[in-house]
């Protein structure tokens, strides 16, 4: 199978859906000639023209709201928000409008849109360009939330998200763009709401999302040398959340560490922990559920502080060992 970068796989997914359905279009800041701040839409402007790859003014509220409006009228917009932090500016249109329209209108409307952007720290971009907070959106009925960790998943999930008839928040991580992985040439879809076991193991379950999947897999690789067999489960979509796969894994291993990139308080890891504790897996637990996540601080600029703000491979190794003790 050919190996591709996450960013290229994502672009391929966008392109295929644009070829397949002329209602699909892209809008956002610098997505045209410039190809997006991170290069996700590179070349699409040249291929599809400025009507379908639309540069907008710097107006996140209008980007999100225009996507909602166009979606209500049968288009399938994919809105790019340059950095995940700026979702807050788009929030009202997304949360009070897009998420609620269908139910509020008695189930008559459809809002088939995707709003996507890169989250996460590790590039020295400081507090207003580094936060991960996909879980916030999982709190709003009507929204779906996706956070792919691999090139394979990002392509399959962007296609599923575009075809979905609901507003989907698509959270990428900027450090994932340069990650390589296998992506088949044939067409495929990764359905929303299905977790994936990224690595099979019998001693302990690590539930990790987004960039933390990569770090958890690295931790697992290192621990293998010490004879510790780690299973890594990636929920892939936060909403809908596939608890079954997680519960089955925990029943098998009896121990679980949850690893998030978001600040720890009220994070999705708490939802997963509660889901495990209130399920049939509870009786199988041989140790308390452990959570590793970002500190409750805005992301600091200094590289060393920044590194300490979210879990790193060493932290995951330590968390696993503590839970096995």
């Amino acid at each position: 199978m050919p190996e591709k970068l996450y960013i290229d796989a994502l672009r391929e997914g966008l392109r295929e859906e644009m070829l397949r359905d002329e209602n699909v279009f892209i809008l956002g800041e610098d997505v045209g000639l410039y190809g997006g701040a991170f290069g996700v839409t590179k070349g699409l402007f040249q291929e599809f023209g400025e009507d379908r790859v639309k540069d907008t003014p710097i107006s996140e509220a209008a980007i999100a709201g225009a996507a909602v409006g166009a979606a209500l009228c049968g288009m399938r917009p994919v809105a790019e928000i340059m950095f995940f932090d700026f979702f807050t500016i788009a929030m009202d249109q997304l949360v009070n409008q897009g998420a609620k329209n269908r139910y509020m209108f008695g189930g008559k409307a459809k809002v088939p849109m995707v709003i996507r952007g890169p989250m996460g720290c590790g590039t020295g971009a400081a507090a207003q360009h580094s936060q991960s907070f996909p879980a916030v959106f999982a709190h709003f009925p009507g929204l779906k939330v996706v956070m792919p960790s691999t090139p394979y998943d990002v392509k399959g999930l962007i296609k599923a998200s575009i075809r979905d008839d609901n507003p989907v928040v698509f959270a990428e991580h900027k450090l994932l763009y340069r990650v390589k992985g296998e992506v088949p040439d044939e067409e495929y879809i990764v359905p929303l709401g299905k977790a994936d076991v990224k690595r099979k193991g019998k001693d302990i379950t690590v539930v990790a999302g987004s960039i933390m999947v990569i770090r958890a897999l690295e931790a697992a690789k290192q621990l293998e040398k010490e004879g510790i067999d780690v299973e890594v489960v990636d929920p892939r979509t936060l909403k809908p959340l596939d608890m079954d796969t997680i519960i089955n894994s925990v029943k098998k291993t009896g121990r679980v560490v949850i690893v998030e990139d978001d600040p720890i308080s009220f994070g999705w890891g708490a939802e997963v922990a509660a889901g495990i504790a209130s399920s049939s897996a509870f009786d199988y637990l041989d140790a308390p559920i452990k959570r590793l996540a970002g500190l409750d601080i805005p992301i600091p600029y200094n590289p060393n502080l920044e590194k300490h703000a979210v879990p790193q491979v060493e932290d995951i190794i330590k968390g696993i060992k503590d839970t096995l003790r």
Partner: peptide, 25 residues
């Protein structure tokens, strides 16, 4: 900013500079 802010967040409150900003607008 004690190294917490970096280029986009320099603020000098004593001098009446309420801060640079990473959010356009």
């Amino acid at each position: 900013c004690r190294g917490r802010g970096g280029s986009m967040h320099i603020a000098d409150l004593e001098k009446g500079n309420l801060g640079a900003n990473g959010i356009v607008g």
